[in-house]
């Protein structure tokens, strides 16, 4: 039962070593390899997911910035356009007003001048008519020049009154 048997002992050692090398080759190396590869794959994919997430967040932020910038720009452009429109509108209005004023003034002047002309004409005609009428009335051959002066004076007085 307790006897030591060297051939048996050697065979046991040999058996165990053979078993160890076979199992290491067909079992442990292969399975551990698969497990390590899997660990690495999972780690890699998690890292890349993390990276993509960060990238997406950054992209989102930059897009938001861009959108905000575009909005600001649009606001600015609209405001500018509005301001310019207002200014132009005012300018046009002012020009129109000025033109109208000018036209009005011109028309007034014209009217005044024409009125003066007319009065002058009328005065002349009235003086002639009065002279003719007076000469007809008086039947006298009056000195035309001196009488005309007289009548003018009379009309001026009448006009002034």
């Amino acid at each position: 039962m307790l006897e030591f048997h060297n051939i048996k002992f050697l065979m046991v050692a040999l058996n165990l070593l053979i078993l160890y090398f076979i199992l290491r080759k067909i079992l442990f190396k292969r399975v551990i390899n698969v497990m390590e590869t899997r660990t690495k794959t999972i780690k890699d994919s998690m890292e890349s997911a993390e990276r993509s997430k960060a990238e997406a967040a950054q992209l989102k932020k930059s897009y938001e910035d861009q959108i905000r910038g575009a909005k600001d720009e649009a606001d600015r452009i609209i405001n500018e356009a509005r301001a310019r429109g207002q200014k132009e509108y005012e300018a046009i209005l002012a020009a129109a007003k000025e033109d109208a004023e000018k036209v009005l003034v011109k028309a007034r002047d014209e009217i005044a001048r024409e009125k003066a002309q007319m009065i002058k004409d009328i005065k002349g005609q009235v003086a002639g008519l009065a002279l003719a009428a007076a000469s007809k009335v008086l039947e006298a051959n009056m000195d035309t020049e001196s009488n005309k002066a007289l009548v003018d004076k009379f009309i001026d007085e009448a006009g002034a009154a």
Binding site: L23, I26, L27, V31, V34
Partner: peptide, 14 residues
């Protein structure tokens, strides 16, 4: 043992 090892490691997958 070797038979079990062969059976269990056949067709290892990720």
């Amino acid at each position: 043992v070797i038979g079990l090892a062969l059976y269990f490691t056949r067709n290892l997958k990720q």
